[in-house]
Design a protein around this nucleic acid. Structure first.
Length: 352
DNA sequence: TCTGGGGTCCTGTTGCGA
DNA sequence: TCTGTCGCAACAGGACCC
């Protein structure tokens, strides 16, 4: 059997350990409520006020003026996460971490509920963290099940009961159905996972065209052949971006931000011993539309100046096509390779 | 009350060489 | 030599995830 383990309000839980004075109070880990910050995690006390992840911090404060804001500290969360997963690896034969606070594992032989309880207990006793587990024959059902009794719950879906377990839940609870798909499906009268599972080919292609639709219908039927992979996945891309408190139109200032972010990317590539062949610059305009411009080189690069030069020229290209103030700029690298830089790009490889 | 940051994957279009 | 077309890589955008 497969289990999906999900830590409950993880960032907030770590902050409560660092500062026990926050216990019992509404706490939000997130961005600046006076700027453009959003909520990353809300403690369960804060959730009572209707505060949720991805809500703007300003809205969170409006709902609960006494809420305490804490800035996220991802480095510390990564450390806690690494310790927690090391502990789980001692107890389960195969573990696949898929985020900082969640992952799949193959349960040891024995009664699935008892095995899940042992892991939950170990995480509580040794890490002082609360987690929820869902247990099923496949990933998608285990994931939905882990959400069924949060926080601190365990939900076991017996073999053969997958489709029945999913059937009555809202379509949006199926992983892969986001806000856009939900609107289309519900407008067409497909409000539950069960209704999605029963769609015929014609209706499915109409509502969710392409491979996505076929995949989602299978998942809705409780069918998910993806194995639990014990191999840690290597990064495909690395990026840095920043939303400004006030929109910026000054080109030199934007270049400055891109160069600073490029230094961060170069440092990150260096740590991993990797180089990148593609650089992508991202711009978000005040109306929230996004433009990306990318360029690939014949050879991998890993130094801040080369990444920064390319990022700035790509920004200029985007701004020539649509000038004006921008809300966010970002730079990313992809086409990652273990090999180090051998040569600087030729002059004629730089974009116009 | 305006909407973060760091990612992955999929899709449609375009340009190019065989 | 011209044209078509096939396949591929690059590019851009979009949906989704935590």
């Amino acid at each position: 059997m497969i289990a999906h383990l999900d830590l409950d309000a993880f960032f907030a839980a770590v902050e409560l350990h660092r500062n026990p004075g926050l216990r019992g109070k509404p706490v939000v880990v997130g961005g600046n409520p006076d700027g453009r910050g959003v909520v990353a995690t809300a403690s369960y006390e804060a959730r009572r006020y209707g505060i949720r992840s991805a809500m703007s911090s300003a809205e969170a404060r409006r709902r609960c003026p006494s809420v305490i804001f804490v800035r996220p500290d991802h480095r510390t969360y990564r450390e806690w996460s690494a310790r927690m997963w090391a502990l789980v690896r001692e107890m389960a034969p195969v573990v696949e971490q898929v985020g900082i606070d969640e992952g799949y594992l193959v349960l040891p032989d024995g009664d699935p509920h008892e095995q899940a309880e042992l892991i939950q207990l170990a995480v509580r006793e040794r890490m002082r963290l609360s987690c929820s587990l869902g247990v099923a024959t496949c990933k998608v059902v285990a994931k939905v099940a882990s959400d069924a009794r949060k926080p601190g719950g365990i939900t076991v879906v017996p073999p053969g009961g997958e489709a029945a377990f999913l059937a009555r839940l809202p379509v949006r609870t199926l992983p892969g159905v986001g806000p856009k798909a939900e609107v289309r499906l519900v407008a067409a009268g497909v409000a539950t996972i069960g209704a999605l599972a029963e769609l015929d080919d014609a209706r499915l292609t109409e509502l969710l065209p392409g491979r996505v639709g076929v995949e989602l219908r299978l998942r809705a039927q409780g069918v998910d052949p993806r194995p639990v992979s014990g191999e840690p996945a290597e990064a495909i891309s690395i990026s840095n971006e920043e939303t400004f408190d006030v929109d910026v139109r000054d080109r030199d200032e934007l270049h400055g931000h891109l160069r600073r972010m490029s230094e961060g990317l170069a440092a990150s590539l260096d740590r991993r011993g990797m180089s990148a062949r593609t650089v992508t610059t991202k711009v978000r305009y005040p109306d929230f539309s996004i433009a990306t411009r990318s360029h690939s080189l014949g050879v991998g690069i890993d130094d801040a100046a080369a990444i920064g030069d390319l990022a700035c020229s790509l920004l200029d290209r985007a701004l020539r096509q649509r000038p004006g103030p921008v809300r966010l700029v970002g730079v990313g690298v992809s086409g990652l390779d273990r090999h180090r830089q051998l040569a600087l790009p030729m002059e004629d490889e730089l974009p116009p």
